[in-house]
């Protein structure tokens, strides 16, 4: 007897079960979001998988059932080669996918706006929720509202971080604080963070799986991202778009701290001896593979450095990758390594 479909489907079922149980494990970062954006994205994923999964199950079940029932040697005696068209079925097979696509499109558009990197509604909603909770707390403590929070002093004011990728390191500039770091991102918890991103050389992709989705980083251009972290802790961020030889080592440590700790950290970095001027930056931006993601701190960042970097790239400044650092097989790899 020929092998039938059901047996072939079994590994798929096992894989699905493995997936569902697997997602409960810690390593599945996307399933354990720690920020408003990542959470919205994961919820959208669940919705989409549920809807599409049921359709796929129905279709797969239909195929499996037909294969079993109408196999040669099976019990069915209802062979009918004239069954080649049916208006009802045609309407159904066009109509049902259309309705599902319509349904998913609605959620897609909704979630696009919620996670729009330039103006994420999810962050605004998280801020509003936070404010409501603060407000409720304040009202309980202060029913008359006499000590209502001063918006100017409110910790919800977004933190601005400028992100520059080089070959193959991350430079995070905190313009307000006048500090910069290499391969380390520290942000306070429950405070919206606004990123401006650019690259000195090629396209990279900014990604912290548990906090925020991907956004491309392009040379001579500015992209934006917004996020808000809901839990303190250490997370992993890295580049997600191939950028050459050091790409695999292009990670950065992400720490979400309490606001007070963040202030301490800023003060500590502000006392760093290394200052980040344009000339210093040019040296930092030389092709380097930072193997262990060694962190460096800079204080006294030159005013407007981020815009300056973009302008220079637009005006034709090229941070060349030497021949020995590209795809060449015959030239020995000469890369500045930080071990």
């Amino acid at each position: 007897m020929p092998l039938h479909k059901g047996r072939h489907l079994r590994p798929l079922w096992l894989a699905a079960v493995a997936f569902l149980t697997g997602c409960a494990q810690k390593g599945y970062w996307l399933a354990h979001p720690k920020g408003a954006i990542a959470r919205t994205e994961w919820h959208t994923t669940i919705l989409d998988v549920a809807v599409m999964g049921s359709v796929v199950l129905v279709a797969g079940g239909l195929v499996a059932a037909f294969l079993w029932r109408y196999r040669v040697g099976g019990k069915s005696r209802s062979y009918d080669p004239t069954f080649t068209a049916s208006l009802v079925i045609e309407v159904l097979v066009w109509g049902v996918p259309l309705m599902i696509v319509g349904y998913l499109s609605y959620f897609s558009v909704k979630s696009v706006f919620a996670t729009n990197p330039y103006n994420p509604l999810a962050v605004r909603r998280a801020v509003a929720r936070e404010a409501r909770m603060n407000g409720a707390f304040t009202r309980r403590a202060d029913p008359a509202g006499v000590n209502a929070i001063d918006p100017a002093a409110h910790p919800m004011r977004p933190l601005r971080v400028d992100v520059v990728t080089t070959d193959w390191q991350w430079v995070f500039i905190y313009p307000k604080q006048g500090i910069a770091t290499v391969d380390e991102l520290v942000v306070p918890v429950r405070v919206p963070v606004k990123f401006d991103l650019t690259s000195t050389t090629v396209v990279n992709d900014f990604f912290i799986p548990q906090l925020v989705g991907e956004i491309d980083i392009m040379p001579g251009m500015r992209t934006k991202q917004g996020m808000i972290a809901s839990r303190t802790g250490s997370y992993h961020g890295y580049s997600d778009d191939f950028s050459g030889g050091g790409f695999s080592w292009m990670g950065f440590a992400t720490r979400v701290t309490r606001p007070a700790h963040f202030k301490d950290w800023v003060r500590r970095v502000q006392s760093a001896k290394d200052h980040l001027t344009d000339t210093r930056f040019t040296r930092v931006a030389q092709p380097t593979i930072n193997l262990a993601q060694k962190i460096r701190h800079f204080s006294h960042v030159q005013k407007g450095l981020f815009d300056h970097i973009i302008e220079q790239v637009m005006e034709g400044r090229v941070y060349r990758t030497p021949l020995a650092m590209t795809e060449s097989m015959t030239k020995p790899m000469k890369v500045r390594l930080i071990k």
Partner: peptide, 11 residues
């Protein structure tokens, strides 16, 4: 095809 999901698995 859903950008919100795509952001997390794109590359």
């Amino acid at each position: 095809a859903m950008p919100a999901i795509n952001y997390t698995v794109h590359n």
